[in-house]
């Protein structure tokens, strides 16, 4: 009997202590998942908005909504769900911005565009083993990002999900909420446009 009581006391104390550990344990995989995708998500939002602060807001909204609504779902579904929220936020942002731009144009004002990049970021690192090569890569990167920015919203989304995130057609269609045929079309057109725009850089 005494053993049972002792066991129960141990069980209760470990359970109380365990509540905190459980919270951390359940949060840790989510933390790792978000840490792994946050930079790519930010870049996608940055391509879409062309503005660092707007991109940060989009990622923040997506993360909050994802954690609040889908953190209980199996981890295998997280990627699709997170990108679905992010793409939906980007599309909403695109619509809002379009209306705002039209309104400002009607008022005769220009909307505020694009934060200039930090010029220090564009400099090649002299400590690098090959600063010349690094500078070349930066130029290539810049050209690629500019070309991606020139794609239409849907083409860009389809291209980044397929070519960067490595999603198959079905996953990309689920994220973008459209048919698999549309994904194939958008992706094909995006690749064709990019190859045309980057012909000099990537012959």
């Amino acid at each position: 009997m005494r053993c049972v009581k002792e066991y129960k006391r141990c069980y209760d104390s470990s359970r109380m202590k365990g509540n905190v550990d459980i919270a951390l344990e359940t949060k840790e995989p989510l933390n790792r998942f978000l840490a792994a995708i946050e930079r790519r998500a930010f870049k996608m939002a940055r391509f879409a908005s062309g503005n660092t602060d707007e991109a940060m807001d989009l990622v923040q909204e997506a993360m909050f909504q994802f954690v609040r609504r889908y953190s209980d779902r199996p981890s295998g579904e997280w990627k699709t769900l997170f990108y679905r929220i992010l793409q939906s936020r980007i599309t909403d942002w695109h619509r809002r911005t379009f209306v705002r731009k039209r309104f400002l144009a009607w008022l005769g004002r220009d909307s505020q565009e694009e934060n200039p990049e930090d010029p220090l970021q564009a400099l090649a690192d002299p400590a690098s083993p090959n600063p010349h090569e690094q500078a070349m890569r930066q130029e290539e990167r810049k050209a690629l990002e500019k070309a991606i920015g020139a794609l239409s919203l849907r083409q860009r989304q389809a291209f980044l999900l397929r070519a960067w995130e490595g999603m198959d057609v079905r996953q990309a269609a689920a994220v973008m909420g459209c048919s698999e045929g549309s994904i194939k079309t958008h992706f094909f057109r995006a690749v064709h446009t990019l190859r045309g725009l980057l012909e000099d850089v990537h012959p």
Binding site: L34, M56, M63, V67
Partner: peptide
């Protein structure tokens, strides 16, 4: 930007706990 992203992530995770 990396710091800002990290802060955003931590805030999102904390907010999720409070639901």
């Amino acid at each position: 930007t990396r710091d800002r992203l990290e802060r955003v992530r931590i805030r999102a995770l904390s907010a999720g706990e409070e639901k």
